[in-house]
Design a protein around this nucleic acid. Structure first.
Length: 731
DNA sequence: TTACGCTTAAACTTG
DNA sequence: TTAAGCGTAA
């Protein structure tokens, strides 16, 4: 059988990975080494050569974007649709399982998915119920505690009761929070994974069924898995079988949300017979950029070890700019982008990458005054906007009266005369009766305990929701959404608003209507798990809204400079990259610089940043920075000092020696391999791709400025070559 | 009950 | 600096 269409344009290690025999396999894929390509080709290989049906393949990614891309690439390659092939995020797949087996998972049939802000609201309510001061017990910390427990497979009963009273209190919060969720049929993101795990753990028959079905398991970005995701993979595969995981331990930058770099490291122990392959050839960056990245990451300990190399020449040196102030830094960056564009480059080829979102403002201002189009990624996403959340609260309440977080939100927007006092009464009633707020409202009305004005307001609200449901029930989803937005009074509220934001909010609400229309036309009922005969589109749409909080960046074609955090840049590449704000306290972030573990994560982030660049890379820091209204004089980041001098060009002379902050146990940078200008001596024999073998006659200059007079007897005599720009192999 | 001015605190982020 | 959260006035 002809498999060249799968294997052509793959290098040797890539080919080895794609064609590896079935069994546990770990592919350590460095930045820019063709990771996604290997994954998609592996799927094609399984189907072509291992006779795998699409039905038997499960491919897991972390983001919806990655899942969509993977699906698209596989479909394009195989030229037919892939019914039965599951490609999705961990959460998406878990959700699908729970919809299918809601009874075994002990969930109500129409359970709702909570997104993180819903979760925070619910936690706040629990804090109030427990009479806890949210100064002393920040809702964020409580939420974090709950999520970390779930990430680590711990139900409240499994949490080891610590002596520390703080732990105890958080455990109380967790317990009550979970009771609330269970009572209202609400499932947060961590719960999706935990329930799906327990579903299999507690139902061996189901587990067997899925083990038999999914013979081939593929996991992308394995370094970012947390404990439960890792255990879920183990459970499904039974510790053996065909498990193909791809990742790069040097790019694990999500430790703060539970991902464990150890998972990729211990894979070989937990999956007996596991093979490891390394993809180390980089197709993205120049030699100088790669050497710098290698040297930087070599300061981390506990790595699996990997050295990226490239065929490309050394390229330009990395340019470091020591700015006077943050304003000067921004001015410098924008000026260099202007030059890039003048020289024929595209604006979209330039990326400004920073550690934290607060840094974007100054660049934004500078870009505006330079009249240069730009796009900032990140920030508020579509489904997280307040006006959208308001509308969703009404939709959810229509779908499920007992959704308390939505009740609370809808009842007070737009203001309708139901305030804190009445709400408190509702909450107390609901808590004592162990019922939802909706039920509490009903019983308070019949009991006649509410004052005249409050009673009227509550009754109006109840009637409104009932009316929204009845009058829109027969409509198609988009019409239904539109009607609910209109009748809820949300639309009027924004129309009457004097702020100019009102107009934009109405546009967003309209966008929500078209999003629902698009959802209906584009979704396959089977994939999203609704009954094709009697589709509950509203519920499915609401789930989608929580699960995919909207990566709908207004994308159309204007040529824009790209601004984003280093985290968001993972997986992307740009010809021209600016890594800004490399200052102690900012990067590494002040909260991370004390603990070695966190510091290493920061360094991995630096590594991710450097390896985003294809041809030209700038690093910059400000000697003086105004931060939170205060003047600061930070030291340059220790990471600057970890990049070898020989790959650096200083745009402005800096004070030397370069500051090297002593870091605890670090291994010395490994010697760089490949095309280093050093090491050329007269009489040395070298090989050049075009001119063949030659002999070095004379070497002039040092480091970047080395040039060599080399005699190529077979191809027309001696030539001046600059090792920085051409690849020379020493024979 | 709602609206406005003062105090406070400040990472990264996918589902 | 700025955005969000809280206390007080209307």
């Amino acid at each position: 059988m002809d498999v060249s269409w799968i294997l052509n344009d793959l290098n040797e290690p890539q080919r080895a990975a794609v064609t590896a025999p079935l069994g546990p396999l770990r592919v350590l894929a460095g930045a820019g080494s063709g990771k996604t390509r290997v994954l998609t080709r592996r799927i094609a290989w399984l189907m072509a050569m291992e006779n795998a049906s699409p039905w038997s393949i499960l491919s897991v990614t972390f983001t919806n974007k990655a899942a969509a891309e993977m699906r698209g690439r596989v479909e394009a390659m195989l030229e037919h649709p892939l019914g039965g092939l599951w490609i999705g995020t961990f959460h998406g797949i878990a959700h699908r399982l729970l919809r299918q087996h809601w009874q075994e998972a002990r969930l109500p049939r129409s359970f709702q998915v909570l997104d993180s802000s819903d979760q925070t609201r619910l936690v706040k309510r629990v804090l109030r119920d427990l009479n806890l001061d949210d100064k002393k017990w920040p809702p964020q910390s409580a939420t974090h505690f709950i999520n970390r427990c779930k990430d680590d497979l711990q139900r409240p009963a499994d949490v080891i009761a610590d002596q520390k009273p703080a732990q105890r209190q958080y455990l109380n919060i967790y317990t009550l929070y979970q009771q609330e969720c269970d009572r209202s049929g609400l499932v947060d993101f961590g719960e999706l994974l935990l329930r799906a795990y327990e579903l299999w753990r507690d139902h061996p028959d189901l587990l067997t069924h899925y083990r038999e079905r999914f013979q081939h398991l593929l996991v992308d970005e394995f370094q970012d898995t947390n404990t439960i995701q890792y255990q879920w993979v183990r459970l499904l595969s039974g510790g053996q079988g065909d498990v193909f995981v791809v990742g790069d331990d040097d790019q694990c930058v999500y430790g703060f949300r539970g991902s464990k770099v150890e998972n990729i490291q211990r894979f070989a122990d937990d999956f007996p017979g596991a093979q490891t392959l390394r993809l180390e050839q980089n197709y993205r960056s120049t030699g100088a950029i790669l050497h710098a990245a290698n040297a930087l990451i070599a300061h981390n300990t506990a790595r699996l070890g990997k050295n990226l190399w490239t065929d490309a020449g050394l390229g330009e040196p990395i340019q470091i700019y020591a700015a006077y102030t943050e304003t000067d830094e921004a001015r410098f960056v924008v000026e260099r982008i202007r030059q890039w564009v003048e020289a024929g480059g595209k604006r979209r080829e330039a990326a400004i990458l920073y550690r934290s979102n607060a840094q974007s403002r100054i660049f934004e201002e500078t870009l505006i005054s330079a009249a240069m189009p730009y796009r900032i990624y990140g920030g508020l996403r579509f489904f997280e906007r307040a006006e959208i959340k308001d509308a969703l609260a009404y939709l959810r309440l229509v779908a499920n009266r007992h959704d308390d977080p939505s009740f609370e939100r809808a009842v007070s927007t737009p203001p309708r005369g139901i305030g804190e006092r009445t709400l408190d009464l509702l909450r107390n009633t609901a808590r004592t009766a162990n019922s939802s707020l909706w039920q509490a409202a009903g019983s308070l009305l019949t009991a006649g305990v509410l004052g005249g004005r409050a009673a009227h307001a509550v009754r109006t609200f109840i009637n409104l929701i009932e009316a929204l449901d009845h009058e829109s029930r027969r409509l198609l989803l988009p019409d239904r959404v539109a009607q609910i937005i209109a009748l809820s009074g949300l639309r009027d509220m924004h129309e009457e608003s004097k702020l100019d934001k009102g107009e934009m909010r109405i546009e967003n609400l309209e966008e929500l209507v078209s999003a629902s229309a698009g959802f209906v036309t584009q979704s396959d009922p089977v994939i999203i798990g609704v009954d094709p005969n009697e589709p509950d589109w509203l519920n499915a749409f609401l789930t989608q809204a929580a699960l995919e909080s909207g990566e709908r960046q207004a994308g159309p074609g204007e040529d824009c400079v790209q601004l984003m955090t280093l985290h968001m840049a993972k997986g992307l590449e740009f010809p021209l990259v600016f890594l800004v704000g490399w200052e102690e306290g900012l990067f590494p972030h002040g909260r991370s610089s004390t603990e070695e573990r966190q510091l290493e994560e920061e360094r991995r982030l630096a590594y991710v940043g450097v390896t985003r660049a294809q041809t030209r890379l700038y690093l910059s820091y400000a000697e003086s920075r105004r931060l939170y209204g205060q003047e600061n004089h930070p030291a340059p980041s220790r990471f600057v000092g970890e990049i070898p001098e020989e790959f650096i060009h200083d745009v402005r002379a800096r004070a030397k020696p370069r500051i090297r902050v002593a870091t605890a146990p670090t291994s010395p940078p490994k010697p760089v391999s490949g095309t280093v200008p050093a090491g050329l001596r007269p009489r040395q024999r070298v090989r050049h791709a075009k001119f063949g073998e030659g002999v070095v006659l004379k070497v002039e200059g040092e480091g970047y400025h080395t040039r060599a007079w080399i005699d190529f007897p077979k191809t027309g005599g001696p030539k001046w070559l600059i090792p920085a720009y051409t690849k020379l192999d020493i024979v």
